[in-house]
Amino acid sequence: MPRVTIADIAREAGVSKPTVSRALNGHPDVGAETRERIQRIAADLGYAPSSSARSLRTGRHDTLGLLMPLEQWWGYSDIQYGIAEESARRGLHLLVHPLRPGEQAEREFVTQTLPTLPMDGLILLMPEGTPRHIGAIAHTSMPTVVIDDRGHRLDLPYVESTNRAGFREAVTHLVRHGRRRIAFVGGQMNDAFAQERFEGYLDALREGGIAYDPALTLLPGDREPTTDEITELLGTDPDGLAAAWDEIAFSALNALHTSGHRVPEDVAVTGFDDSPIARVMRPPLTTVRQPFRQMGAAAVRMLLDSIEHGRPPAHFTVPTELVIRDSCGGHAG
């Protein structure tokens, strides 16, 4: 069926097109009775306002953009859910744009695609590694907020979690339950988030009166440690093991099981992120929960603040939460 227009409504109501337009937009110079009659006729005819016309009139699309990498990681789905839920709560549409890997794709997005997208602001999920061209978004007129769980800094407002404080809380929990030889197993140490978690580990040792022992740390550079490397670390006789993220903790649990160590009796284990598998491991993994949904919602709120007021905060921090399960052998406290 042909699209119902303002002219159709004006003809049915016996008024001019400007009167219909003012009535539908709530202008006070249209009488209440006339406005209600026009609105009733518009509803009966099935009138839907043109989004492009409304955009020209208001300068807004009522749409937010989400730029996300193609790499798969379970945390992205929780972040997307938080963004979608908060956007829907505020009556906004969400335009998801996948970012192909590579510098050329980044450059094309910033210079060619971004200026054409019908949206009011952009939320950016950082891909693996520091992007070379994406940072140029900071020099465009597009309001942008970064969801940054990796520690990249692009001169853009960003949402982060408490990597350092969260990891300190996990290791402190082990110290309070009598663990004194606590190993740290990390990776990707060129990324700020990994370095922050290592610093949280050092904070907890220092606050617990435990001297740092380099022999109890496994830092294999810009990659995850292998199970063989973790098995070798177990030769230093730790009684606790703090993994920089859950996947490393899963490898550690496998290495401990294979080498005959009991968890948590011999070695207590903690992770970071609270991935879905953490609760079904044997034993279930004590870990630090990343607030991914809350981070997504916070990014929407920050972006709207930027769009509506032009003065968003430089960053917003969402606190992590220690989730205590059987792998550490202790209870809250």
Score class of each variant (00 low, 15 high):
75 G>Y: 09
185 V>R: 07
74 W>F: 14
112 Q>H: 11
111 T>H: 13
235 G>M: 06
38 I>N: 03
231 T>R: 10
320 T>D: 00
35 R>F: 00
154 L>G: 08
245 W>H: 08
17 K>I: 14
308 E>Q: 10
31 G>F: 08
257 H>C: 01
174 L>R: 07
229 E>R: 10
109 F>L: 07
68 M>P: 04
115 P>V: 12
296 G>S: 05
118 P>G: 07
265 E>I: 13
237 D>H: 12
57 R>H: 06
74 W>C: 14
249 A>V: 06
303 L>K: 13
247 E>Q: 14
287 T>Q: 03
98 P>K: 09
313 P>C: 09
185 V>Y: 12
42 A>P: 02
153 R>F: 05
160 E>H: 13
104 Q>V: 15
293 R>V: 06
68 M>S: 12
149 D>F: 14
22 R>F: 02
325 R>K: 09
15 V>G: 00
271 G>I: 08
95 L>A: 10
310 G>Q: 09
79 I>T: 15
165 A>Y: 02
231 T>S: 15
136 A>K: 12
179 R>S: 08
167 F>C: 08
18 P>H: 05
89 R>C: 06
138 A>Q: 09
256 L>T: 07
159 V>A: 04
325 R>F: 01
164 R>E: 12
174 L>M: 11
36 E>L: 02
18 P>M: 05
148 D>V: 12
124 L>H: 04
307 I>M: 04
27 H>Y: 10
41 I>C: 02
101 P>C: 11
214 P>N: 06
281 M>T: 15
288 V>Q: 01
325 R>V: 03
271 G>T: 11
42 A>T: 01
230 I>Y: 06
322 L>F: 00
54 R>E: 06
299 A>G: 06
